[in-house]
Design a protein around this nucleic acid. Structure first.
Lengths: 142, 142
DNA sequence: TACAGTGTTATAGTTAACTATAACAGTAAA
DNA sequence: TTTACTGTTATAGTTAACTATAACACTGTA
């Protein structure tokens, strides 16, 4: 896990997202114990309550089960459920926004997806984008 | 403009982003007046101070100039500057995250690009992804 | 039993975001 | 001057996020 925080989202949600990522990546498998609240709090120098809040979200989502005195554990079926739910969420909410941004910046989604620049490449401002993504004619703003 | 807010970011930042989008899209050109603080506040049913805070960000970024009694105006050079800065920000910060998510969810380029009205399509969990977005071969593990 | 791990709750304080309400200040036009 | 727009500041209150510190409750093991 990474040790830094993003100012664009509350810590507890980022925490939740990181655990989700670990489950999706198979780092945490069904039945596995999550890193303990206290450990995480110490390692990231964050308040235990903040960690708990993030973890509680996962419990509320039915992904994780809490066993007092033992720890918190990845539920059976969580990875599968997660893949489904997160895909829906991404395709329905995040991707449309991102895609709009890409178009707005005159970048091409195809290029970006096909192993183009990820890291810190500066697009020379001058050159016209090779093949801008056509904006969707049926695009509905909402 | 849209009338709704996203819980993932403070309103004033979303407001700022919308104006940025309008500038990039050419809806607001150099020298144009932004929608007035009071109008926006009324239309979106938001506090004038919140709108002002969003607008102030733009002033601080050198994109907009404020003229008391007159309004706030898009600076000369703002669109060009914006394109450069926002591209850098997107490629350096947002895209890497988004890309990681895409890979994690095993989504395919076709799935992402062909969805005109992809809103709430459920990716049938069963079928193997046709051609997952490849992770960068040059990516360094650490 | 004692102990060292777990999760959980209680108390209380700080800060950022947002809100309502009101007033102040500058510009242009009737 | 009056009116109707602009941006701006002042005062004060609410809520969510985060923090520190401490205690409570449970489990497995020495």
């Amino acid at each position: 896990m990474d040790r830094e925080w993003n100012d664009s989202q509350p810590i507890y949600r980022q925490l939740r997202d990181r655990v989700v990522a670990m489950i999706l990546d198979g780092v945490l498998k069904e039945g596995d114990a999550l890193p303990s609240v206290r450990n995480v709090a110490a390692e990231y120098r964050v308040n235990p309550l903040t960690v708990l809040k993030g973890y509680q979200q996962l419990v509320d989502e039915g992904l994780v089960e809490s066993k007092r005195g033992l720890g918190m554990f990845v539920n059976v079926g969580a990875p599968k459920l997660l893949l489904k739910v997160e895909r829906q969420k991404f395709l329905g909410e995040e991707w449309p926004r991102v895609r709009a941004t890409i178009e707005r910046l005159g970048l091409t989604a195809t290029e970006l997806l096909n192993g183009g620049a990820h890291s810190n490449e500066e697009p020379s401002l001058g050159d016209a984008p090779a093949k801008p993504v056509e904006s969707d004619p049926a695009k509905k703003e909402r």
